[in-house]
Write a protein that binds this DNA or RNA. Structure first.
Lengths: 123, 123
DNA sequence: CCTGGCCTTGACGTCGGTGTGAAGGTCTAG
DNA sequence: CTAGACCTTCACACCGACGTCAAGGCCAGG
């Protein structure tokens, strides 16, 4: 299939697909006219990339998943490198949640304090 | 005081202070040499800005807090507009935490599944 | 022949909060 | 006189994942 079709099938844009290729995540064959030609493996790769991006992964993080698929993995996360990224991301997310929780607590306290005190909104 | 001193007192850079001014958060008087001249009120304002930025607020979000201080508020959050931002931010943070929790759960499941199955890392 | 729909490459714009550097003015100490 | 420590404005660089436009090739249908 060509780039427009792949974009539509994966709910993305041709710009993004070219960008993924530029970043070395995709490698398309070319037909006689110089058009990019994709197959089912590429379709799976792009779907993998999109689902990872959707949950907050960076493009770099998707690399091992795509490599895993290309190496014949049943799914993108069927390889140790992918699982390593999972673990790293999990740790990052935990950190992020912790920080947000701390801020949340502080914020909630500030709001409570403000609505509890008359002095909070002078004039 | 001048910009270098204010920057040092607030743990920021002269560049940032000029940027805050450019964004209309600060307004400095000028001395005969054209140098910016700051007072205690400015110091408080910058401290307010920095502490809000530090917990993930955008510069725009700090605007009501600075205005509140300038209007004579005991603290930057002593005004209804500031509290409104608090509430909005709290909601945003809650959304963010929820999304992260969902991703975290999904991720943890993926890791469990992968380490549980032998088939997970073929070859 | 012309229109329109697909494709190509190349390159600039976006967002926010800075870092960094150029090119210059002003003052002080040695 | 000079070095250096302040200050000024202007303006480009950064990050990431694209959007968007320009300028052009290729092909089918009317």
């Amino acid at each position: 299939m060509r780039i427009g079709e792949l974009a539509e099938l994966t709910g993305t844009s041709t710009r993004s697909l070219r960008y993924y290729e530029e970043q070395g995540l995709l490698s398309a064959r070319r037909d006689a006219k110089g058009y990019r030609e994709y197959d089912e493996a590429d379709l799976r790769a792009v779907r993998e990339i999109r689902s990872l991006l959707a949950i907050g992964f960076g493009l770099e993080d998707t690399r091992p998943f795509v490599a895993c698929l290309r190496a014949g993995g049943a799914s993108g996360d069927s390889c140790p490198d992918s699982v390593a990224v999972y673990r790293r991301k999990l740790a990052e997310i935990d950190d992020c949640i912790d920080r947000l929780q701390a801020v949340r607590t502080q914020l909630a306290r500030s709001i409570d304090r403000c609505s509890g005190e008359r002095r909070c909104c002078p004039r």
